[in-house]
Amino acid sequence: MEEEGINSGPLHGLWAVTNRELKKWYKEPFIFIISLVQPIIWIGLFGKAMNLGEIFSAGSLNIPGLDLPKQIIDSLSQEVLKSTFGTTNYFSFLAVGMLSFIVLFSAMSSGMTIVWDRRLGFLNKMLTTPLPRGNVIMGKVLSSVIKALVQAVIVLLIAVLLGLTFSAQFSVFSLAITFFALFLLAMGLSSLFIMLAIKSTRWETQMAIMNLLNLPLLFASNAFYPVKFMPYWLKPVVMVNPLTYANNVARAMLIGVTPTASVAFSVLYLVSFAAIFSFVGIFLSWKYISS
């Protein structure tokens, strides 16, 4: 009965698991579009509504009693913006921050799929086949990474349409580095959220975990504001948050903001983050996926 051509290699079925998740996604474009709405709203509301560039300009800023020339106010404002955000364009600053935001939200939902698979018995079905255990998790991580990066591309395109201006040094190379950093972030975050879901049977628990972590992770990073004006107690949190490093890389590469930690260090930090969490995730799944 043993047939020829059966693939029992350690990676067999990996693409099948990945593609299953992706299929559910591209067969249901509505969900795909919905997931893009939020970061776009953030770009629109935060980036455009809070128009810092306009606030700090001679048109709106006028100090009574002092008859400062328009030029001085303008250049003063530009300097304030530049020293705060590293760029005079707050919209660009925020739009780039939204790339790690979409990666975070996309990766977060990856844990949900494993909870559903467990509840609906699909996980058990997978586990009775010769599919290597690690591939169950790797496939989910991989599909989540692909989804996150596709969404990041779309968010970036929309940001460009809305007026994101690249730095003078911008090239294909800087784009590649940026997406490499986002890839690492997606990899680590997906592994983390799948790991948190591995023993869970209730999607309510998973929702609670997601709600507990999403906004704190987002706001305790440099996605909206630069680190240097944060209170001392918040800084350490922000400095371990991987989102901060992804933003550092993306801002340095795309809009030329000099980062608080160097690009090389940031990339290294993200490499370790992704490596540790995907390794631990696969190890734990091996151990805990079945009883």
Partner: peptide
């Protein structure tokens, strides 16, 4: 299994081919 494990969002064909891939056929 006792439960219906097929993925509801996929077709019958996609489901059976998915399982075939798990077996490495």
């Amino acid at each position: 299994p006792q439960e219906y494990t097929a993925d509801e969002d996929l077709t019958g064909w996609e489901n059976i081919m998915l399982i075939a891939d798990f077996y490495g056929i």
